[in-house]
């Protein structure tokens, strides 16, 4: 019926690009500019690529940059958080966040998510970004395919009682 899922997103394995392309570094000076790679690495750490596409494969990092660049104050606070992430990465692994392995990046975010008041602002910022990333990723067709999810539509779920044969003989 009325349900038509959003058409996400860019070219992953031949999928069509459907978000407006953003101008890279459009916010340089005011925004995250050279922190963009860290930002993409962050979004990739939230939903990494494995045998299924991850968030950056779907262009979610770009979409978020596009979305946020209108708001300079917000950009500024994202930059501050990215700096904190990078700082911790250099302290623990002597590399910028985006140059670390997925394991290293994951451990940095785990520390920040579990941290006390020292990183309270960063933690909140990361949590918001994580929720937004999930918001975009898990409403996309590739995620639906990964999860074998079929959104409700006209006609409903006539197969609701036939998802799997349940063996009731035991």
């Amino acid at each position: 019926m009325r349900i038509a899922r959003r058409n996400l997103l860019v070219s992953v394995m031949g999928l069509t690009l459907s978000i407006p392309l953003i101008k890279r570094y459009a916010v340089g000076g005011q925004g995250i500019g050279d922190l963009e790679d860290s930002f993409s690495a962050l979004i990739d750490t939230f939903v990494p690529t494995d045998e299924y596409p991850g968030a950056t494969d779907l262009g979610i990092d770009l979409e978020l940059i596009n979305l946020f660049q209108e708001n300079k104050t917000y950009w500024h606070s994202i930059s501050e958080s990215l700096k904190a992430v990078n700082q911790l990465s250099r302290k623990l692994y002597s590399v910028n966040f985006q140059d670390g392995s997925l394991e290293q990046r994951t451990s940095i975010l785990e520390i920040l998510f579990a941290s006390d008041s020292e990183h309270e602002k960063t933690k909140l910022q990361l949590r918001t970004l994580l929720n937004r990333t999930f918001g975009l990723f898990y409403t996309s067709q590739p995620a639906f395919d990964m999860l074998d999810y079929h959104p409700p539509s006209e006609g409903g779920y006539p197969d609701y009682d036939r998802s799997v044969p349940i063996d009731t003989s035991k």
């Binding site: 750490t45 939230f46 939903v47 990494p48 494995d50 299924y52 991850g54 997925l102 994951t106 975010l109 998510f113 994580l130 929720n131 999930f134 918001g135 990723f137 898990y138 409403t139 995620a143 639906f144 990964m146 999860l147 999810y149 959104p151």
Partner: peptide, 22 residues
């Protein structure tokens, strides 16, 4: 009901979270 709501309510992030989702 739906993947995104489920994702928000599933603790964590990263590979572990994605695998738990699957």
């Amino acid at each position: 009901l739906s993947p995104v709501s489920y994702a928000w309510r599933t603790p964590g992030f990263g590979l572990d979270h994605k695998q738990t989702m699957r």
